[in-house]
């Protein structure tokens, strides 16, 4: 392997790690809700989108009031403004669209989730318009060199934030009283209720935390690609869902592992699939490659990489 080949490979691995961290950020929110409620929150991607766009609006407002503020501070403050928006949104979604259906047939909340997703997309289209928004580089996107490969400060921030959030959530779920209540709710809602856990409150808190994460994820995605759009949540949600399942849905570590793995698969797949198949398949089969790995993983580990083995009656 020549030096150039090595640089390319290193770059592809870095690309995969950054992309994977983006997926992981979104997947964490997905998996948290799933872990507690056993519900695929299809609207999660839309909350990510709202997070990104409301941060953008807040940042524009902030800069028009205080023009001289440094970029990272603007971003931090406007993210802090967007987080409550998403929290309120998450709370409302759960309260209105999911809670009444907690004892309904399993697919009913899935359909309301799809309905909410369509609603949010179109509301966002009315509020922020149909155009793509350029997301200013509040954190520098100027690259620096790492052993011949390049990275940007935003990418470093993304990886760090993803890891920090994972660690924070793990601490929350496994080491705090609230976390214990969450785990009890996940295990068995009615028994947890009998043990004095306020089920409704716990589920609301889970959604609110998940939505706050979505806001952060949205900002990170928008900053990394310098773009925000009312349609950005759909694809992202889908990828994050895939990542969460790959890692074992409901498992926090699994979401990060699944996200990173998916990112690496996509990146290396797009980079090398053409050479591997002698030019027969190219980067157009990137997703096929990713789904193929997913299916293979699930064939041998039916509940994902780190998922617990579910009892026969899931």
């Amino acid at each position: 392997m020549s030096a150039v080949d090595f640089e390319i490979l290193l770059q592809q691995i870095l690309n995969g790690l950054v992309l994977g961290s983006v997926y992981a950020l979104v997947a964490l929110g997905y998996t948290m809700v799933y872990g507690v409620l056993g519900l695929i929150n299809f609207a999660h991607g839309e909350v990510v989108m709202i997070g990104a766009l409301s941060t953008l609006s807040a940042a524009r407002l902030l800069q028009s009031v205080l023009p001289g503020l440094p970029g990272p501070i603007v971003l931090l403050l406007s993210t802090l403004a967007a987080i409550p928006v998403c929290m309120a949104l998450g709370y409302t979604i759960e309260r209105v669209a999911y809670r009444p259906l907690r004892f309904a047939p399993r697919l009913a909340p899935l359909i309301t989730a799809i309905g909410v997703s369509i609603l949010l997309q179109n509301i966002a289209m009315v509020v922020w318009g149909r155009s793509y928004h350029s997301f200013p580089a509040y954190v520098s996107t100027e690259p620096f060199q790492v052993f011949g490969a390049t990275m940007t400060p935003v990418q470093v921030v993304i990886i760090v934030v993803a890891m920090a959030i994972m660690a924070g959530l793990m601490f929350l779920v496994h080491r705090t009283k609230l976390g214990r209540a969450m785990r009890a709710t996940a295990e068995n809602q009615s028994v947890a209720g009998l043990m004095g856990v306020n089920i409704n409150a716990i589920i609301s808190i889970t959604f609110v935390i998940g939505s706050a994460l979505a806001a952060v994820a949205g900002v990170m995605v928008a900053a990394n690609y310098s773009i925000a759009h009312y349609y950005m949540g759909f694809v992202l949600g889908l990828k994050a869902f895939t990542a969460a399942v790959l890692g074992g849905i409901g498992n926090l570590g699994g979401a990060v592992a699944g996200g990173l793995l998916l990112g690496l698969i996509e990146s290396l797949g797009a980079g090398y699939i053409g050479d591997l198949t002698g030019g027969f398949m190219g980067s157009n089969y990137q997703d096929v490659f990713a789904f193929f790995v997913l299916i293979m993983v699930l064939v041998f580990r039916p509940s994902g990489l780190m998922g617990e083995r579910v009892a026969e009656r899931a």
Binding site: Q12, Y225, S267, G269, A270, Y272
Partner: peptide, 15 residues
């Protein structure tokens, strides 16, 4: 190749 809803092109650009 990429997709009309993609935002990340780093893999193909690196190649």
């Amino acid at each position: 190749f990429t997709k009309n809803d993609a935002t990340d092109f780093r893999a193909i650009l690196t190649k």
